[in-house]
Amino acid sequence: MRGPHDVGGLDFGPVDPAEHELTFWEKQIDAIRAVIGAKGLVTTHENRRTIEQMGNDIYDTLNYYERWTAALQRQMVDKGILAQDEIDARVAQVRKRLADTGELELNAGSN
């Protein structure tokens, strides 16, 4: 009867207090989400709902900002803002660029 996110009262073991410095990639996803949110395109409530609906396996396998990325993809397609085909094509392009240069060119993408 629990969604994958609803973990209060369970026991997932000792807390690892190690600091994890966010990577540029993670901060960038956070920033894109913030802009999308500020424009009213996707609310926090919708974002939570999308993540909760991923199911246990995906929720547990993806890390925090991977879940946010996956949620953004789903929302953009659902709202007709991006088409899945164009996302797939761009993923292939980025992957090729990555194979060629060995880098993600994280700062690229602005015209």
Binding site: M1, R2, D6, G8, G9, R48, R49, E52
Partner: peptide, 8 residues
Amino acid sequence: HIRTPVYI
């Protein structure tokens, strides 16, 4: 989507 956790 429910914000009342199951444990409560």
